[in-house]
Design a protein around this nucleic acid. Sequence first.
DNA 1: GTTCACATGTAACAGGTTACATGATTGG
DNA 2: CCAATCATGTAACCTGTTACATGTGAAC
Lengths: 182, 182
Amino acid sequence: MNVKSLCLGILYFQDSTGYEINKLSSEGRFSHFIEASYGSIYPALTKLTQDGLVSWREEQEEGKPTRKVYSITEQGRSVLVETLHGHPKEDVFKSEFLFICLYSQAIEASHLDQMLDHKIQRLQEDLQKLSEKEECCDHPGSNFAIGYGKAINQAALDYIIKNRRILEKLHESEIEHIKISD
Amino acid sequence: MNVKSLCLGILYFQDSTGYEINKLSSEGRFSHFIEASYGSIYPALTKLTQDGLVSWREEQEEGKPTRKVYSITEQGRSVLVETLHGHPKEDVFKSEFLFICLYSQAIEASHLDQMLDHKIQRLQEDLQKLSEKEECCDHPGSNFAIGYGKAINQAALDYIIKNRRILEKLHESEIEHIKISD
DNA sequence: GTTCACATGTAACAGGTTACATGATTGG
DNA sequence: CCAATCATGTAACCTGTTACATGTGAAC
């Protein structure tokens, strides 16, 4: 998923500025499975304009800077729909968290504990945010995606709570061992 | 998570060649939350050698090409352990699949159906592979990571099976609509 | 008067991937 | 003899991030 398709996808739903596209991708209903930053969004919009897939107009609201509001063109819509009909790339899941878990034996118990607590908290926050998004949106596609996000986050949360002892137990036995050798 | 840390992490467990590191990261117990390709692994190993974090020896088995077997050095171990004690970056989840789901209304019903079937199949395969890895490995950290992978994949699978109608229903109503207007 | 939210944009850099180049040995 | 597996490595490319540069108006 490249940034150009993301822009097209957001503009498919509503006219937006680059600034708003960034917000939607980092906080909105796209945020749990996609990301983009200004440095890629603005050049993408320029390119899409050149290719005739989007157009823009200037808008001036008093008390606010001039904004460039982008709209998707008919051509843009058909390009997006075409893209949508291709094979989706495999989902990407990268987790430094799990990488660190592999080495739980090499990490200080307090640090491991802190990391697990932090991860649990983060998952709870994410679940909370997803629930909020769910409430204010009755678009089926979005609700499916939000529900999916909730499902996997909930599963991760439950799993960690249930199984953190797998990692922590190692340290208990180490502590016992130290006690014995003392 | 950069490729250098990944190499260090794999070598922490066992001496390996670049070729084997690739296999472990794309098929082994690291594969469900990390990825790297030759083009990044070999340069990373060169750099790590320069920095004294790994060393290598040549090994010749008859009937096989000469291989460069890398080992982690003491310095490499402490650098890795230090890295492990930092704050892990947020997990990354990118899903072209969910992106496409947002636009289910704009997609042909047969294509959507096929995509969902394919995704279900893929999740089942991944779960199968994770179970196989689980059986041949009794390292707690790895089992925790594998269990985590299974938990979220299972949740995703269950969710799609239960909720695919959210997306597909749209098409049913469209079909009805067409019938009526016919 | 300073911080926050709005707003646009670029340039240097980082971090990777893909494709290429090369070559041995085994098994069907 | 051809495909697959083992094995190493480079170069061109792509894609995106970070940091920078700039500016307005509102709220505190």
